[in-house]
Design a binder for these strands. Sequence first.
RNA 1: GGGCGCGUAGCUCAGUUGGUUAGAGCCCUCGCCUUACAAGCGAGUGGUCGGAGGUUCGAGUCCUCUCGCGCCCACCA
Length: 857
Amino acid sequence: MTNRSHSFNVPDKPSLDGIEAKWVDVWNESGVYHFDRTKSREEIFSIDTPPPTVSGSLHIGHVFSYTHTDTVARFQRMNGKSVFYPMGWDDNGLPTERRVQNYYGVRCDPSIPYVEDYVPPAKPDPKRQVPISRRNFIELCDKLTTEDEKVFERIWRTLGLSVDWRHTYATIDDNSRATAQRAFLRNLARGEAYMAEAPTLWDVTFRTAVAQAELEDRDRPSAYHTLSFHREGGEPVLIETTRPELLAACVALVANPDDERYQPLFGSTVRTPVFGVEVPVVAHRLADPEKGSGIAMICTFGDLTDVTWWRELQLPTRPIIGWDGRIVADPPAGLDSEAGRVAYATLAGATVHTARERMIGLLRESGDLLGEPKQITHPVKFYEKGDKPLEIVTTRQWYIRNGGRDEQIREDLLARGRELTWHPGHMSSRYEHWVGGLNGDWLISRQRFFGVPFPVWYPLDDEGNPRYDAPITPAESALPVDPSSEAPEGYTADQRGVPGGFTGDPDVMDTWATSSLSPQVAGGWERDNDLFQRVFPMDLRPQGQDIIRTWLFATVVRSHFEHGSLPWSTAGISGWILDPDRKKMSKSKGNVVTPIDLLEKYSSDAVRYWAASGRLGTDTALDEGQMKVGRRLAIKILNASKFALSVAGQDTAVDASAVTEPLDRSMLAALAEVVAEATAAFENYDHTRALERTERFFWDLCDDYLELVKARAYDTESPAGASARASLLIALSTLHRLFAPFVPFVADEVWSWWQEGSVHGAAWPAAAELRTAAGDGDPQVLAATAEVLRAIRKSKSAAKLSMRAEVSNVVVRGKQADHARLAGADIASAGRAEALDFVPSDDTDLHVEVTLPETVE
RNA sequence: GGGCGCGUAGCUCAGUUGGUUAGAGCCCUCGCCUUACAAGCGAGUGGUCGGAGGUUCGAGUCCUCUCGCGCCCACCA
């Protein structure tokens, strides 16, 4: 017997051990995933990869969604596209600041001077964070994020993402800062960005403004307090409030214009309890007669409705909450009485919580608190990263128009949303509803440190006050700039902060104001315009459903203004990962699973298999069972490939013309359909379907076809043997490529046994070629033949016999047409039957009678 | 209060424009060392498709109502 098993480079004992490390290195050196920028736009598939937040750790949800994108990238690459698949790191912003504070035990104090070669505390003390300069703080941010990014890259490589690692960016790097500043300056020049002093949602912990998109409601216990407002010569007016501490900020009472109970009061005034401030009673449609007593106090500002009332009714401003969340020292205008001032003094400087208790005390003393507070639970607005309720504070901020206050822009942006292809389609409604429900422009300034500075200075007048109406901007060629350390053109550094000199804008941009430019940052906008015109607008934006209102929308806004187009043609929205108890996995719930252990336990291919079995937009449970199945599949691919290649022996050249047997042609015809379906599925971003079809075919091939042709394939004398061997190799080559997007490690491993180059650089299989090789192949031949084989197995199984047991006779009854379809010789050899007889019958179904040897019952 | 999605074998999910006896994997049961694979192979048990009604020759697959779950949005007196 000839030893054929080593004709190709097939290992005796194929294994998944060490497969990741091996191929990560090979791919890195070969550059198989490198983007070819000589290609034209039509030959390129470009992906606007989400930059993960590096101030933490990757969790299994990242693995899930990034695998989806990677399967698409790999398909497109094999299908002939040059794939632009960059990777970014979102390292700018508050999450990094918090991580640096905790990691090093420091905090930023912009008033402190820079220290050369600063060394952070050896042992961070979370309760006593060391104040350091802004520049030192930013240096620590840079240092830590650089380290975090290396860890992330290693995980991504181990997972097998086919990213071109020459194209990376970080949202705080020079390129990102220059891009964000350039885009901002253009928005400013066109009037799309503007500065305004207005009531703003404010996080008192981080002391920064917060955008509408970053809000979330949380249920908090509270209480209704019934307060008595006094009226000249009349009954007191009773209002209910959950925020009695804001009484000093009260500017009016409001009721619904149709509310007959209060109509007589409209136009009159009442006096606030304790403080004795005279305030008008006004009417507004937003006042709900059903709520509380039907009349409410308007404060500047207790909630967003207050802002609406204040604006529309043109009420005075009496703010009492400062940036630090405490009651400000001086009483607001209008609080004139001596008694009122004394009362206010007891509140000044207190936190909101303390002020509430003291205010309740004051109201009890004066007898203006009626009854006991009624305990309730109600939703309160929080910054999604904060843990204290938001306050509303009047501040000067930068905004970008987003349709929240402009009907035409809103319509234009809604139209962009409809222009975009969504996968799954119903995700478009999230965009539609969000844009439709916007109630203000996009607030992009943050009073923080580790972010992109606004490239703006202000001249100081003779008294040293900034002239916000005359901002100084740099030339685009000077970007990126840091106005807090650089002087604007025409000024010298020593003019900073002195009358007649200048001051830099102290704020930084919100992280979304940078990440909304990810296509421009990655694509080389205004930095490498040759690249940019080849990749933009991009083909695909993959992302999570939770950031449609932020990242996706903001990116559309920026592209709409700057380029007059969508930033990409398609959005692929991934679902959530649920833990095995079907709860959404999130850091706050503490049920996050880190991927490294799973990758090591099951192999990257196995974890990818699990991830790829989740459809876009569908929440998927973390299921280690699926990873086990994926591992089994990978091992099966190794073994089946080893078998097919060892049988094929020296027949290295795949000769389609050798495929003559009906069973072989049938198998290839079926495979052609699989290729057609998988291709169509991928083109429609349905990677799950592509995987499912491929996998189904592969297991059937192993179970039935391989068994059927095993004996024949060893026959080197007859054309029938050559037909089997050629068919095996064609199927193998096709399956290796079909599996490549999903299980790239094992796919390249088996490919390397017998092919040149990487499977990931090979051409995606063509259904037409397979159909040609299949000739007149009829898929029913394999189906019918396998059915008979299964019947034989069933008989043996029922008789508790080995599959190797000899069968004396098999009789098949069925229509004559089916007779022709049966590969009798293959069935006989695979079933170990001495004879196979066919008896024509009128019955549509095949009936198989198996006669087992008499020695066994 | 509004919107989106989901409810198919014990579990995780397919089921494409309505069409023959509803599928897969896992689990479980029984069996098999068969020269690619015992981290394997073969076979089998198990759902009438959340509920009700309707359209149709025919519905898991369309319509109405209803129950349950998840997520998002909403002016927090």
